[in-house]
Write a protein that binds this DNA or RNA. Structure first.
Length: 442
DNA sequence: GGCCTTCTAAACAAGA
DNA sequence: TTCTTGTTTAGAAGGC
């Protein structure tokens, strides 16, 4: 094992070079990031043509994502691509299996750069890689091995890298509070290891991390409203028409309850987007991968977050939980009732009914039980109310259905707006350009 | 320079 | 016993 692989001078040499290369890549994009069925069901996902995208020139990092990862998303991810990732398809080294059409979406000048880019270390942190892997999974939860597999599949860089990266992945899973260990289902009780899923509370953070890691300039365009309507969140975070933002937003949509791909941990929350901590994107850049053990910094982050966005004490509780999850578990009530309720209602415990939440403080405090910001509990209390009033169940069910339908409509609207902002516009511009060309020819 | 984040390495334990 | 998984600690590097 070499001394330092990723952070070695080789990285220093690689990454900037990669970024330079990315700068030149303005070609194909995977504007649609709908995994699996979404992709199939959404013609936009594959038909959006960004070849004419001359906007966002400063978002150079976008290109790497466009050229590599997002295409995977757009094409449906590993599930939809059993034969290999588009990364492999466009790579010269894998050219044996490369058909002439496989690179039709790539820019003409992109191949060499693509090859280089996938040989370079991905500009994602491990936590983001893990996040993407988990989010790409149909069940929104993956065992470590499959996380390895996803990373390997989408980032062939790691196939040649020493196995230390696996250690890093495990380290991230263990240490990063964004990820939660979930006991395997009973049917897979024999399977080794646990499933890992993204903590719904931290999903926005991860999304923002993803966004910020590549689109720092997009932040100016994401202004979390004080009291956001559900669809406004998506519109408000439409992130300056960049495709990665469409991707992250699609992740949001993907994780939204009205969506087909329900997070098993979200499956029963009809109004997930109404929960501020899940819809608001923090404006604090330091919250992205806060698996640091520094409590003071964590407190600062908490305060800044609560002040900069209308996050509730629930979020602060999450923040506290983050600070203390590992090393100070039990010393403070990071696991508030609200927190646990939220997690319960979102299925976190449903995923592992018999198992106590691993490495979460057993002494979940009631510190925030009286918090006024229990939007999650409000959405879930109706469920419990309906269960208590069995006579009114049909009416309640109907009401819930209506709410769901409404939410679906809103999500559709939001998705439409988002797609419009993110991709369709450039698509239409491209088509306009083509039309004008034809017109001029005529 | 200090702090924070991220990455990497290593050691260790537990389980398959 | 070997391998995998999960946890923990430590240190280095880079950014702010």
């Amino acid at each position: 094992m070499g001394p330092i692989i990723g952070m070695s001078p080789d990285k220093k040499a690689e990454v900037p070079g990669m970024q330079e290369e990315r700068t030149g890549l303005r070609g194909a994009c995977g504007a649609g990031t709908l995994p699996e069925a979404e992709c199939a069901s959404s013609p936009l996902a594959t038909s959006v043509d960004c070849t004419g995208g001359s906007e966002d020139e400063e978002l150079t990092n976008l290109n790497w994502l466009h050229e590599n990862l997002l295409q995977n998303f757009a094409l449906g991810g590993p599930e939809a691509l059993p034969s290999g990732s588009p990364l492999l398809d466009i790579e010269g080294d894998h050219g044996a299996s490369q058909g002439p059409s496989s690179s039709s979406h790539s820019s003409a000048h992109g191949k060499g750069r693509e090859r280089d880019s996938i040989k370079s270390k991905p500009p994602f942190s491990f936590s983001l890689l893990i996040y993407m892997a988990i989010e790409q999974s149909p069940t929104k939860s993956l065992p470590v091995k499959e996380i390895y597999g996803w990373i390997l599949e989408h980032f062939p860089y790691f196939s040649n890298a020493p196995t230390g990266w696996k250690n890093s992945v495990r380290h991230n899973l263990s240490l990063n509070k964004c990820f939660r260990k979930v006991e395997r289902s009973l049917g897979k009780a024999n399977g080794k290891g646990s499933l890992w899923c993204v903590d719904p509370e931290y999903r926005p953070n991860l999304i923002q991390a993803l966004r910020k890691q590549h689109f720092p300039t997009a932040d100016a365009f994401c202004t979390p409203p004080a009291s956001p309507p559900r669809h406004l969140f998506l519109q408000g975070c439409s992130f300056k028409e960049s495709d990665i933002d469409a991707a992250t937003a699609m992740m949001l949509l993907n994780s939204a309850p009205g969506h087909h791909h329900h997070d098993p941990c979200d499956s029963d929350t009809p109004l997930d987007l109404s929960q501020p901590h899940s819809v608001l994107v923090s404006s604090d850049p330091k919250q992205d991968h806060n698996y640091s053990s520094s409590s003071s910094a964590g407190l600062q982050r908490c305060s800044s977050r609560s002040s900069s966005s209308s996050l509730s004490s629930l979020d602060e509780g999450a923040c506290e939980r983050g600070q203390s999850r590992r090393r100070r578990a039990g010393s403070e009530g990071f696991h508030s009732d609200e927190d646990s309720d939220l997690w319960d209602e979102r299925g976190g415990r449903r995923c592992h009914p018999a198992a106590p939440a691993p490495r979460r403080s057993p002494s979940s405090s009631a510190s925030s039980a009286s918090s006024p910001s229990s939007s999650s509990s409000s959405s879930t209390s109706s469920v419990s109310n309906s269960s208590s009033a069995t006579a009114k169940r049909p009416a309640a069910k109907r009401a819930r259905l209506e709410v769901k339908l409404e939410l679906d409509e809103e999500l559709k609207e939001a998705a439409g707006s988002l797609l419009h902002l993110a991709g369709i516009r450039s698509c239409t511009e491209a088509s306009k350009r083509v039309k004008s060309k034809r017109h001029s020819r005529k």
